[in-house]
């Protein structure tokens, strides 16, 4: 098995407070990994260190054998890291299809200025076809021409997933995809995600507060508390782990 993402010994402090303390996280190709922990445990900080929006004080992030060092976010994205956002981030004033088309164009890296000026910057039929495939996969075909402002939050999340998928990620980082969704919407999203993952075979790192979703979706889970990794292992074991329960429930005597 080929290790895809290797974040080793990540440490990060904010004004003296240690948000992450020597955290190591590994994702194998095609694997579905969860990252959970109570509020303020450092999940988001770790996520941002992996994605390059934050630079860790020490430790390194290695993607497919390449140390990412201080590469900016967009370079990491081109190396195969896709992501979604907790607070949905879509391009305002565009249609669903346009989201995917620009992602496809960036993936091809085919955007010289002179081509634009000669009128060769518009979407090609090839690109349109590829994006239509992804839309079909997500069940968004009917919404392709809709302005994103008219979508529901759940549909918006799917567009984010689609936009990331078009870039052909080997690792998809999902940042709290259930937030803002009700139970039924969360379940529907989880089902769609699972299906696509099975088909495309990329690896997933899921940061989530909804333990139920993590339990249903992931094979393996890391648990953070106070910036430290307190446990990691198969998701089912984690859910039964006493330390994990204590982190979530505090001093509540479990099974009283």
């Amino acid at each position: 098995m080929n290790v895809l993402l290797d974040a080793v010994g990540i440490t990060k402090s904010f004004s003296g407070i240690r948000a992450l303390d020597d955290v190591t996280l590994r994702v194998v190709e095609g694997e579905r990994v969860g990252l959970i922990g109570p509020n303020g445990a450092g999940k988001t900080t770790l996520f941002n260190c992996i994605l390059g929006t934050l630079r860790p004080d020490s430790g390194s992030v290695i993607l497919n054998g390449v140390d990412l060092g201080s590469l900016p976010v967009h370079r990491r994205a081109r190396m195969g890291m896709g992501r979604t956002f907790q607070r949905i981030e879509l391009f305002s004033d565009t249609s669903v299809a346009e989201h995917l088309l620009i992602a496809e164009r960036v993936r091809q890296g085919n955007g010289a200025l002179w081509k634009d000026l000669l009128g060769r910057g518009r979407p090609t039929s090839d690109e349109i076809r590829r994006c239509a495939e992804v839309l079909d996969l997500l069940g968004l075909t009917d919404l392709a021409e809709e302005p994103i402002e008219t979508l529901s939050l759940g549909q918006g999340r799917l567009v984010e997933v689609g936009r990331a998928l078009v870039t052909g990620p080997r690792l998809l980082l999902l940042d709290e995809p259930s937030s803002g969704l009700d139970r039924a919407e969360t379940d529907a999203l989880a089902a769609t995600l699972a299906e696509i993952q099975r088909e495309k075979g990329f690896a997933v790192l899921l940061v989530e507060h909804d333990v139920e979703l993590v339990a249903a979706f992931t094979d393996r889970t890391y648990v953070l508390d106070f910036g430290r990794l307190i446990a990691n292992g198969p998701t089912k074991e984690m859910m039964a782990d006493a330390d994990v329960r204590r982190a979530y429930l505090g001093d509540l005597e479990v099974g009283r």
């Binding site: 994605l51 929006t53 900016p72 976010v73 967009h74 370079r75 994205a77 081109r78 896709g82 992501r83 956002f85 981030e89 879509l90 391009f91 305002s92 004033d93 565009t94 346009e98 088309l101 620009i102 992602a103 164009r105 960036v106 993936r107 085919n110 955007g111 010289a112 200025l113 081509k115 634009d116 000026l117 000669l118 009128g119 060769r120 910057g121 518009r122 984010e160 936009r163 990331a164 078009v166 870039t167």
Partner: peptide, 28 residues
């Protein structure tokens, strides 16, 4: 042409959400 082309669409994406644009590989 610029607006409809790659550069314009990239700029549009950046204006909509810089974070998201970077996340698909656009260099701001």
């Amino acid at each position: 042409q610029l607006r409809e082309g790659t550069t314009g669409r990239m700029l549009h994406a950046l204006r909509g959400s810089e974070m998201a644009a970077e996340s698909i590989g656009i260099s701001p």
